[in-house]
């Protein structure tokens, strides 16, 4: 139940976003996030977007290993 899904925003209207999570389309609440646009990536938990994210883990981990 606690699994978060990374999803891409397809469109957004009145605080409800249609997202694509690995091919599955779903409507979620986007009320916790300001300034969300189609094409943005979000982390979804229990039907609401909890954070805006970037979808590139490689750049993230490369930077961490370099700083180590």
């Amino acid at each position: 139940m606690c699994v978060g899904l990374a999803a891409r925003v397809l469109n957004i209207k009145n605080g409800i976003a249609l997202v694509d999570a690995s091919g599955a389309k779903r409507e979620i609440s986007a009320e916790l996030l300001d300034e969300l646009d189609p094409g943005d990536y979000v982390m979804v938990h229990a039907g609401i977007a909890i954070a805006k994210i970037t979808n590139d883990d490689k750049a993230e981990t490369d930077a961490i290993m370099e700083a180590l």
Binding site: M1, C2, G4, S29, E31, L32, H45, A46, G47, I48, I50
Partner: peptide, 13 residues
Amino acid sequence: SVGFETTVPAACL
């Protein structure tokens, strides 16, 4: 309503 900080906001909403 079970769950940690991740799920609580949805229950509060």
